[in-house]
Nucleic acid binder design. Sequence first.
DNA 1: AATGGCGGCAACCGCAAGGGG
DNA 2: TCCCCTTGCGGTTGCCGCCAT
Length: 331
Amino acid sequence: MRKPEACGKNNNNNNKLRKGLWSPEEDDKLMNYMLNNGQGCWSDVARNAGLQRCGKSCRLRWINYLRPDLKRGAFSPQEEELIIHLHSLLGNRWSQIAARLPGRTDNEIKNFWNSTIKKRLKNLSSTASPNTSDSSSEPSKEATAASIGGGFISMQEQGMTPMYIYPSLSSSSSSNTSMQAMFLNQMMDPLPTFDHGLSMYGASVYFNNDASPCMTQIGVSGDHDFYGNQGILGSVNIGIEGELHIPPLESISIEENTKTEDMYDTNNNSKDPYSHVNRNNSICSNNNKAQNMAAGVGNLWQAGEELKVGDWDLEDLMKDVPSFPFLDFSS
DNA sequence: AATGGCGGCAACCGCAAGGGG
DNA sequence: TCCCCTTGCGGTTGCCGCCAT
């Protein structure tokens, strides 16, 4: 941690703004000012509170440390679970995640993720299978092929529900159809549970040109787990717990969209990236919302528009996220 | 006791978005 | 329409403290 007296390049004779750790006196000043005056323009706060800090620094200190409604202490297992769940949906949008964890800040969650959960997931993946030794790397074709015979690859940690199911299906598998059906049936089962009692959080299935899933993703994701490969032409979103419908928030990038369109131009008469999904109507038939969302994406692609993650109505999406009544934020 | 490695976390940095003039 | 300012966000940095040697 930086020493309170440590000053950066701005702390020279021309600019006496302090940097580094906040002293208790500075905290008092900011706290008193905020409690008496409320939040206003942060540069005014810094000035009026008599702080030799920039407004940005004051804002950060207030939000991450001084705010009265902050919850202190370690993350509970329930919070941990929720963070993992939300991260699987939202990716690194820490502010969005923090908004759903009362009393926690985005910085806190981000640090927790980077220092604890990421490491834990890495350990999980390295112990569970050599083919998934790095959960943060893009799944390789080799890994995909290697996992066909074994079916699901799952990982578990004592006391933790999340798990990975990594590329487990491929068009090259002789039992592809039955595997696909089995897998998708499993996915569509509300609160799906495998024989070791694990439950899934979220799922995405990517399809090759021939409508065979080339990558599946369930539950927790690392930073890059959703990245596709050349074979990805679309995705289907599976309802979880009968209510949760998840668009491929992390799986769609502009680059991939471009790739996708190119592939449709060359490989397929249809420009609808979801035509393959729609062929599997049984997959989506009881998930109209997901279907509609998928169709919406397809329309965007058809129109040649860039699709950004932010284009999704996050609030609309998240309203479907099951509440976690077991969470106790009162402590 | 000294020291080096490592993890946790507070804070900074750079960028983007939004609003007002 | 452009510019400037403010705010918000995610990534990164760097220090402290713990622990192993």
